[in-house]
Write a protein that binds this DNA or RNA. Structure first.
Lengths: 230, 230, 230, 230
DNA sequence: CATGAATGAGTGTTCATTCAT
DNA sequence: GATGAATGAACACTCATTCAT
């Protein structure tokens, strides 16, 4: 009987605690993402991350052992952790590879490029050489899986005769470069408050994809029907 | 004895001083460029800049009011100048526009991309949002003229019927993005000591150019003869 | 499911709680003793004391107002008791005083020196100046009774003509110093993991006793038969 | 001519600078010694060391790379560095070994035991197990050389037939233990402000030496003439 | 009573900047 | 002008202590 009552009490207390405890990391990660993107890794002070998440400095270190671990968690939360989702999606794709690539780049823009998560990539490009440990982590958790994803798409196109034969090692950058450049640009000159060189991401991407697809298609073959010239 | 040594030291210092008095700022800028590119803005310590320039910490602040001013001076010093040279070269170009573009990107790699100068661009991408004033300067002095250069090439191609019609506003990034990405990559993951993802710049560029040129050429038209598929 | 698990946990905790309610302070003191001896006062974290006692951090502060109070309680808890036992033993001793002293130091080693209790003395030597109040307590409860014990032995030797006349005030340290030094050494350099200077306690003590007894015996008198030169 | 004038100026400037720069480490070491002895290693804040030396926190780290290096420097300055002095003195000693040992312990008291330097030894006994790196350093720089010194004296006595044969490995502690105990006592219970157990160092030492010398002398041999029973 | 999430003062160390010489 | 000794604000991380549950 007592056990029963206690179990209820415990459950409630535990529930509230856990709800609170479970919410904290998310709030901290959101705050950290914002600040890392806004100010860079080194310039982001851990106390400010905590304050923006509405907790004290100590609490941050209750959930993340160090600033570096916090950063890694941000990367996992916003990039690395979402790769499997892409993998599943592409494994199930049945249309033409050109459409697949176009779809990939467009949804990438919606899910990553247009979100604060894109700031992380720009951040890593800036800080990689200063934080080799982070660079290794990022390469293992994001770059390699991401490149594999792209490579598989391109290979599918080549295998099905939709794309011309490609040096895969560098061909991945045909897809990566426009996306990474876009993120870097958006968070550098695009964010400096002075729009001398505006860049409409959607139009930019559309043109890049079109030109790329046309550039990839085998000689003599007509472009896939869905492709439209800008 | 000590006096003796000191007198020698003083004499040498004096001699050096007079010889170099006017060279100082230049030596400091050179040292600063190296270090900013090598380590990034935040990680570059002003004392090391001074030491590499062969002067004392105090002297640095004699010529530049702050680290920030030094950074701005470095960026201002190392830009602009190059553009007119390219403009002249391209104004005189008589071959096909495809060859012209290929030539432009290849010589860009030799003259800029492969040199320390590429570090400045990467640096600007990293720090633009922290130095908006500088970002404006960089856009005016480098980006706009550079884009104009590219735009003129592309327009030439379109005008001569070598390229398909293009939305010029974004088409410049078809050329810019691969180059800027390459510089960023080279100075980030390419320089972090952990070569999980090596990238051969020459092969990378060749493939980008090929694909781009193929992607730009009008429907039904054969590729320009010099183009080779990778 | 979660409720189920929680209910079990709660039930167990509850059972434990009631069984142990009165044992708590004792378990905390035991854990604290171990850790204070092992790591010193400053380096002992209160959370670890709690964990080793099987309770939460908060519970520790339920029984002891502060880390300082806990320390004081540990020292107070682990003292006193032993002295009367020695006193009875020595009051009944009938052999030679040399044998008595030898016996005293050897059994001291077995009952105190070689046990964790020796850590308390070392601890007090280290922290006495930081806890004057505690130092007074320790002097009253341990040092004075202990010195009286030794003094009585020495006086017995002098009275029976076995030892030469002694300045009793300082003579007690002839016996104390080797023992206290041994404890300090054992828990400092003897415990630092780097045995550059090993010290065999038994041999050390034997030699100290021998030399001391020989040094105490009156001129011209032969050494007590049991004494052996090392 | 200019060189001449400059050399003078330089010399003066340099002189003043150097005098100041040379004085700093000494002032810092003195302050550090005081505070380490007063509060212990961990509890001594680097800022307070700096303040007591009349400089800012930053200046401390200009001269000592870390708190640990500061401590090592204190040890070297006050203990390790003075061992050669003793070695020279004893190498030149021509009297009896008993007198030599008595002299050694008495001058040790005057030069070390009675000075703040004695606090370092007590400190090391307290902190050795928490700072293994310091413990190793101290053993190498102080304990080993010190024990060698003592061992050499004892061996001299044995070789000349003044002392009975000894197990040298532990015999060094016959001399060391009384001294180390004295330092520990002085800086623990002797410093806690509550003199329940006063200890007159001079009398203490005299008695320890007497008893030790008597305990060391071979059977049947008269004590060295200078020895006096207390 | 017991818990453990939350706190925030405190610490060693760095480095841009100043200024007496 | 030139120096480099001195400064002190800043920052990541720790841990004794509190208190809502």
């Amino acid at each position: 009987m007592i056990t029963r009552i206690l179990s209820d009490t415990c459950a409630k207390v535990q529930a509230k605690r856990e709800r609170r405890k479970e919410a904290r990391p998310g709030e901290l990660l959101a705050a950290a993402l914002e600040l890392f993107v806004e100010k860079g890794y080194a310039a982001t002070r851990s106390e400010e991350v905590a304050r923006r998440a509405g907790v004290s400095k100590g609490t941050l270190f209750l959930y993340f052992a160090s600033k570096e671990e916090l950063f890694k968690a941000v990367v996992r939360e916003n990039l690395a952790g979402r790769i499997p989702e892409w993998e599943a999606e592409f494994a199930a794709y049945t249309g033409s590879t050109a459409d697949m690539l176009r779809y990939a780049m467009q949804t990438w823009w919606q899910r990553v490029g247009a979100t604060p998560a894109s700031g992380i990539t720009k951040l890593m490009m800036s800080e990689a050489s200063n934080f080799p440990e982070l660079a290794v982590f990022y390469q293992q958790e994001v770059i390699q899986p991401g490149q594999n994803l792209i490579r598989r798409i391109l290979q599918r196109g080549v295998d099905r005769g939709e794309f011309r034969p490609l040096d895969m090692e560098h061909a991945v950058y045909l897809v990566l470069a426009p996306m990474i450049f876009l993120m870097s640009w958006k968070h550098s000159f695009g964010a400096c408050g002075c729009v001398l060189t505006p860049l409409d991401p959607e139009k930019y991407l559309a043109q890049q994809v079109d030109t790329l697809l046309y550039g990839l298609c085998p000689d003599g073959r007509p472009l896939p029907k869905e492709s439209k010239r800008t």
